[in-house]
């Protein structure tokens, strides 16, 4: 398989996964809004911080109002929005048409046109949920189509690499939602913990739901929804497909099918160790942020090793 094509296939899968996860993030935030006490203000700015787009956002918008943040992450042309992720997915798919299943390209193409025509409407709360659900479902449909029609050769391996790595990264960001300064009004020292509690639960429950993880959590974790168990589940569960550990284990399996994988495998093993050994209870007490940052850095290193090994033209 050509290095250039491998790179495009990998990015196509990453962008598709990122579009889906971005839609999921926007959905949690929007749903969360409805469950919080009327006077609570959501920290919308944290959404652009979590996605690492705060600089670009601040350059364009003065205030982190809901409609600004949503527009920025949903339909603006800025290289970060769901719409742009889908455009990039399409562009990469268009330039790898010769090896991807034809139907996959058709679906990606359709999804892009749908997004282009409709996503701007999602700035309004009314149609937003339905639109995001449709985006999420379509992304999953495309992933399913590739799973059902691609031979398990190099091309599909790069799809899985891209998807799993992006998923690991985005799941750490979604965990960030829960641990960050999302609820400024509720996190002040003058608020009694027992007042806070129902909303904390709501928050974590929504986070689980955003990852379609609520049911699986319920079946596998016998405790009620609480910060520690949810974070453990999303970061360390071996069996749940959107959990970071599971995504990294998938990577190790895929890597076994690719040539010259030693360096990449080492980096994945290292990242896996850090995830598995994280003491979540202690981390939550001290603040999860530095740990999540570290994880994101290690994940970025995995990408760099992948690029060095397979994408950079040999000689």
């Amino acid at each position: 398989m050509l290095s250039r094509v491998a790179e495009r296939v990998y990015w196509q899968a990453r962008y598709l996964e990122r579009a889906e996860n971005m839609a999921r993030l926007l959905n949690v935030f929007s749903t969360l809004l409805l469950d919080l006490p009327p006077r609570t203000k959501l920290g919308w700015h944290s959404l652009v911080e979590i996605t690492g787009t705060d600089e670009a956002f601040d350059a364009k918008y003065k205030q982190a109002l809901e409609r600004n943040v949503i527009r920025f992450l949903l339909s603006d042309n800025n290289g970060y929005s769901v719409l742009d992720m889908l455009a990039l997915t399409r562009e990469n798919a268009r330039t790898t048409r010769e090896i991807m299943p034809m139907e996959a390209f058709e679906q990606i193409n359709n999804l892009y046109f749908f997004a282009k025509e409709n996503l701007a409407n999602g700035v309004a709360r009314g149609p937003r949920h339905e639109l995001l659900e449709k985006i999420i479902a379509s992304c999953q449909q495309i992933s399913g189509l590739m799973a059902g029609s691609m031979s398990r050769g190099a091309a599909y391996s790069f799809v899985r690499l891209g998807r799993s790595l992006e998923r690991a990264d985005m799941t750490t960001r979604i965990v960030d939602v829960g641990s960050g300064n999302l609820l400024p009004a509720l996190s002040g020292a003058d608020v009694l913990p027992e007042v806070n509690e129902p909303y904390e639960n709501t928050l974590w429950m929504n986070i689980l739901r955003s990852q379609s993880a609520y049911q699986m959590y319920r079946q596998n974790v016998k405790h009620r929804v609480n910060a520690e168990d949810v974070v453990k589940f999303l970061l360390q569960d071996e069996e749940f497909p959107r959990a970071v550990t599971h995504a990294l284990v998938t990577l190790t399996k895929v890597l076994g099918k690719l040539p010259n994988n030693t360096k990449v495998s080492k980096q994945v093993e290292k990242t896996l160790r850090i995830v598995r050994q994280g003491k979540i209870d202690q981390l939550l007490d001290r603040g999860l942020l530095p740990y999540i940052d570290r994880l994101q850095l290690e994940i970025a290193m995995i990408h760099q090793e992948i690029a060095k090994t397979w994408f950079l033209p040999n000689k």
Partner: peptide
């Protein structure tokens, strides 16, 4: 994507 070595043409692949 291509390179010529010893008058033969090669593609740069992941292998």
């Amino acid at each position: 994507d291509l390179i010529v070595e010893k008058d033969k043409v090669f593609m740069k692949t992941i292998d």
